[in-house]
Design a protein around this nucleic acid. Sequence first.
DNA 1: GTGTGTGTTTATGTATACGTAATAATATGC
DNA 2: GCATATTATTACGTATACATAAACACACAC
Lengths: 240, 240
Amino acid sequence: MTPATSTQSELAAGSDAAPVPKGLSQTQRAVRDLREMIVNNHLPPGSNYLETELAEMLGMSRTPVREAVIVLESQGLVESRPRRGVRVLPLSARDMEEIYEVLTELEAHAAERAASAPIKAADREAVETALRDMDLALAGDDREAWAQADKRFHDLLVQLAGNGRLTAIVDSFNDQVHRARMLTVRLRPSPTKSNQDHRDLFNAILAGDAAKARALHVRHRTEAKNLIIGLLESHGFHQV
Amino acid sequence: MTPATSTQSELAAGSDAAPVPKGLSQTQRAVRDLREMIVNNHLPPGSNYLETELAEMLGMSRTPVREAVIVLESQGLVESRPRRGVRVLPLSARDMEEIYEVLTELEAHAAERAASAPIKAADREAVETALRDMDLALAGDDREAWAQADKRFHDLLVQLAGNGRLTAIVDSFNDQVHRARMLTVRLRPSPTKSNQDHRDLFNAILAGDAAKARALHVRHRTEAKNLIIGLLESHGFHQV
DNA sequence: GTGTGTGTTTATGTATACGTAATAATATGC
DNA sequence: GCATATTATTACGTATACATAAACACACAC
């Protein structure tokens, strides 16, 4: 779900090649599987697990589990508390606000940047496809497909900015709110306006109107945030 | 597959107190000490260390060292490569660009936010002190003291935005460029203009002019970035 | 000299061992 | 019954053990 970005410069010595690992290490597997289980709500927010339990669940010893937990902790998905186990972090409305604030800012900046440079044909095509998929999903009222295409659209825009660190942060924060989005995507009204927003935004980018792209993105994300938080509260969720 | 100890969230329960650890764990100590050594250039960029070496340096076994390395890796300070040891990541001009791009955006946003809310007297006082310290350091031409007060000023502004996640990212990115800043702070011309920038910026915040605060901050950081990158290049550093 | 094969060394990934501090359980006193 | 002291349990932090695969060295063929 979150591909690690490789934006690292190699030292002057051109000696080093990429250290390609053939099969995933246990730690990497643990990170992947645990993240997958957390963002897809298989490990519910607020639940606790002992290291031993996780190790048994994943069929490995405690060592790689501990290492994976550190990674996930740094991504804000879990919290490891001395003797109470590893806790899947729930999101409060306040957490959502914080995350969306950063997300809005960085994504809007990416949109601004994308508008300031010419778009490669392949990139443009990929975005157009995402837009079409969103319309298709909307027509068929397939909310999961819509959410997936929506994510793809926003991810592509961020990548257009060409800043690996920015992409990494956005990916990580998106993971953190994924649960809330999937929960509300079925509760919200049909995202017709959202699709229109996307088109307007991309048009602004294509037109090279950076200021408009930024403004549209900020508005789009702000509305999305308010919608999600409102839905969660009106349905009685104080934590997700 | 053992079920979770308590698959039920202990949400509402205000039962939990802060899990205060009396003495740092070895892992925490390793994180603190290694970070300290890295940002202060005691472990030079590009240098490699075997886990065993670090363990010996820190007087502990490999286990906590490995855990610390994972943390520092997630903060972009080191890279652990399969059989080549832990490498202190050097920063290229491109890396600086990426980091400053995120930093500029998030700090400018923080300034904008700070301008949109009333400032508490204590906060205002703290910022004023930082400003005074910068002037004092400038008068005495104490570059280290100036850099320290400058950092304090910017940190305070970010905290005024009241977003913990934003603060965490900015802190982490500041760590990554700390080396470069300290290296150039002695090479750059006297930061007279910088001090004036700071005052103008803070005045805009106090006046509640969010747009101006943002614009000033963007300009300030952009100039700082160009200054640093220019200095590094003109002095022949391609990596720091 | 260049390339290939074989043996050796060793850094790492992972499992396991183990002491300790925190929690739970039990007993004791009032 | 409730509070406190005492003991037992156990989850974790850390050290250690160990197998494996990568890097290295060296021999050999051409």
